[in-house]
Design a protein around this nucleic acid. Sequence first.
DNA 1: TAAATATCGATAAATTAATATTCATAATTG
DNA 2: CAATTATGAATATTAATTTATCGATATTTA
Lengths: 208, 208
Amino acid sequence: MSCKNTIMRLSEYRRILCKLKALGFTRVFSDHLAGALDISPALVRKDFSDFGLTGNRKSGYTVDELIEKMNMILRKDKVEPVIVVGCGGIGRALMEYNAFAGEGIRIVAGFDSRPELHDLKGTIPVHDISRLEVYIKGHNIKTAILAVPESSAGDMADFLISRGVTGILNVAPIPLKGYDNCVIRNINFLHELENTIYFASMLDSKQK
Amino acid sequence: MSCKNTIMRLSEYRRILCKLKALGFTRVFSDHLAGALDISPALVRKDFSDFGLTGNRKSGYTVDELIEKMNMILRKDKVEPVIVVGCGGIGRALMEYNAFAGEGIRIVAGFDSRPELHDLKGTIPVHDISRLEVYIKGHNIKTAILAVPESSAGDMADFLISRGVTGILNVAPIPLKGYDNCVIRNINFLHELENTIYFASMLDSKQK
DNA sequence: TAAATATCGATAAATTAATATTCATAATTG
DNA sequence: CAATTATGAATATTAATTTATCGATATTTA
Ligand SMILES: NC(=O)c1ccc[n+]([C@@H]2O[C@H](COP(=O)([O-])OP(=O)(O)OC[C@H]3O[C@@H](n4cnc5c(N)ncnc54)[C@H](O)[C@@H]3O)[C@@H](O)[C@H]2O)c1
Ligand SMILES: NC(=O)c1ccc[n+]([C@@H]2O[C@H](COP(=O)([O-])OP(=O)(O)OC[C@H]3O[C@@H](n4cnc5c(N)ncnc54)[C@H](O)[C@@H]3O)[C@@H](O)[C@H]2O)c1
């Protein structure tokens, strides 16, 4: 039915729709959204139809309605509490990234093994890693960003899963596998860069 | 012939192969690599064959040979200089991320408009944004990480491209489009998180 | 040395994803 | 009010990616 990529695009549609709404637009056409995402209008319509997002012939889709329904699909009706495990360079950047807040995602706490990073008074407290288990249970945490060194990533993921976490965004450079009780999404900056460099060098050789 | 995803997997294969080599392995089978990446052995063999990476029936592939050839494909024969534009939270984390260094990627400089971030004495200097053009030309920079606020991202990308940059890794939450003279890869943490949360909630409803 | 076996390599099949086409219809226009 | 037009919805087509199949052949073993 709907492919994996559709969900990622739904996030992208939604972001653009919010901007259009802020600009005062009330209606939008598949062709416009397609242009913004660099895809075909047919794909926009197909994505929408897969999720029962309907429009009107001749007058397109209603911005408000799309946003509202997408919020439901993407579980934006409630704020999702997220923890950050590993508060070093990238973990800290993500904790301090305030764009999540306006988008229904709230980073509620960080956890680290290094005592000098602990800070229970800050806007977002950083606890000792030993408090992780109690915290997850006490706050019913389902989602975690994993930003520990590669050597700990696998064990930490297992721990999180065993304690009830069902979604992990992993930035450690090791491809962790999801299971039937947890989704894991891996982001590897090194590979993203390598990929960029590869395709850039392909451009070069093509243009010659 | 070879699909886009193949290149991304090549990076993943390579990373695993380097670890195997460090552990003393000299040979590897498609089945092993497939397990590590959670794909089928057939895909491993197909990926390899697309790039002329051959093995021996019965005795698999030679680790050294694979690494060497992958290094060629991924342009690892020389160190790629990369600049970071926007040295705030995430830009700084990426600059200080030392895992790039050992992988043929060297972050050579940062650029920011905020004077308090300028630092010409550090391991990786941070210049004023006004020096960007001269630096790119002087050092023949082809690759940039773009970590400025969304409002500047489009203009900054255009500027980089006009000055000869051919590969951009963009972390600002706006999908920038590549052109025929530059590859742009967008990473959007918010969307990655939304995606994770969505599929996690799907797991829940499936298991009930 | 012959038989058994594991694995690659090539190709075919299946699956997934994206695009094109066609048709129905709401809005617009004359 | 009929004709025109732009658009969504549904379906068909094409493309892309992944997986499965199967023959060939190194390696191992008896
Ligand atoms: N910094 C980046 O820009 C960047 C980019 C891509 C990937 N990464 C990856 O992200 C991860 C974190 O990178 P970083 O640069 O922030 O490293 P870092 O060393 O600055 O931070 C890692 C943090 O994890 C903590 N930690 C280690 N083991 C732990 C454990 N078992 N439990 C809890 N906390 C633990 C450490 O105390 C440290 O504060 C690494 O896997 C790295 O490879 C980082
Ligand atoms: N911090 C994160 O974890 C995170 C995560 C995902 C995405 N992002 C995105 O990455 C980008 C940077 O985020 P951040 O948290 O580091 O923000 P930040 O405000 O800390 O850093 C942005 C930096 O860019 C500089 N800057 C602004 N305009 C500039 C220009 N025209 N030329 C040069 N420098 C300029 C600012 O001085 C600042 O230092 C943003 O687009 C943000 O949405 C950040």
